[in-house]
């Protein structure tokens, strides 16, 4: 039993069709519990009032926005090195999800920032680097759309993902240098003394788990769609040949 078994589309389809309802169900449970708990059963912050509750959308989506790019980097590497089609299709399937996560993080941040900072948008390093990340997602998806041959598209987007990762990280630190931040530091970390209070922490944890599961669900669905579309194309091609 190794992970490379799932490089076989058939095996992938079998396992994912079995796993999909479970993952989707868990995602739903975690999200609904986490959000309801977070929105209605946590106290209001003494400074931020009820606006603090946007954290249950903002933090998980921001985490996912970055981690989905990392996942695309890994799957692109797997495709470039081992030529497993499922891997390339998973990267393709993840990109729009990542883009939407980035957008959610930006929009919820703006909604929170309006009453708290008094502005919808600030050229703060974190905000700016998220905007740049959003552009990287757009470029990546546009390149997938533009190329007809699926293998060529997978190769080129893979290379773009590698180069883009380096420059996304570089931009992240360059903008740090360019402007001082308004955004608060990390709310969650393993090694700091003072973290977010437990009242907010547990529902937040549930929401993060929900977002991860939601992402897995969406990527599984989208990858399955891509594999089916690929099969359909192969069938059509065979039809034309006959």
């Amino acid at each position: 039993m190794s992970i490379w078994e799932y490089a076989n589309p058939k095996k992938f389809m079998q396992t994912s069709s079995w796993a999909l309802p479970w993952v989707a169900g868990l995602a739903l449970i975690a999200l609904v519990t986490g959000l309801v708990w977070g929105f209605f059963f946590t106290p209001e912050d003494y400074k931020q009032g009820s606006t603090v509750k946007i954290i249950y959308l903002h933090v998980p989506s921001a985490m996912m926005a970055i981690n989905i790019w990392v996942m695309m980097l890994v799957t692109s590497l797997v495709w470039l090195i081992r030529r497993h089609h499922v891997s390339a299709l998973a990267a393709k399937a993840a990109a729009p999800v990542g883009m939407v996560m980035t957008l959610i993080a930006l929009v919820t941040g703006a909604i929170w920032g309006q009453p708290m900072w008094g502005t919808w948008w600030e050229w703060d390093p974190r905000l700016t680097s998220f905007l740049i990340l959003f552009l990287f997602y757009l470029g990546y998806m546009a390149l997938w759309e533009a190329i007809d041959n699926p293998d060529t598209a997978a190769d080129l987007t893979g290379v773009l993902c590698l180069v883009g990762s380096v420059f996304a990280v570089l931009s992240r630190y360059a903008v740090n240098f360019w402007n001082q931040g308004l955004h608060q530091g990390a709310t969650l970390s393993m090694d700091k003394e003072e973290n977010i209070s437990d009242v907010y922490w547990y529902p937040l944890l549930l929401c993060i788990a929900g977002f991860i599961l939601l992402f897995v669900t969406l990527v599984l669905i989208r990858t399955r769609t891509e594999i089916r579309a690929r099969r359909l194309k192969a069938l059509e091609a065979r039809e034309r040949m006959a």
Partner: peptide, 16 residues
């Protein structure tokens, strides 16, 4: 498409 791909890569150079 070229400009969409290339311009984000120019960000660090532009900043510095």
């Amino acid at each position: 498409l070229l400009s969409l791909l290339v311009l984000p890569l120019y960000v660090p150079t532009l900043i510095f």
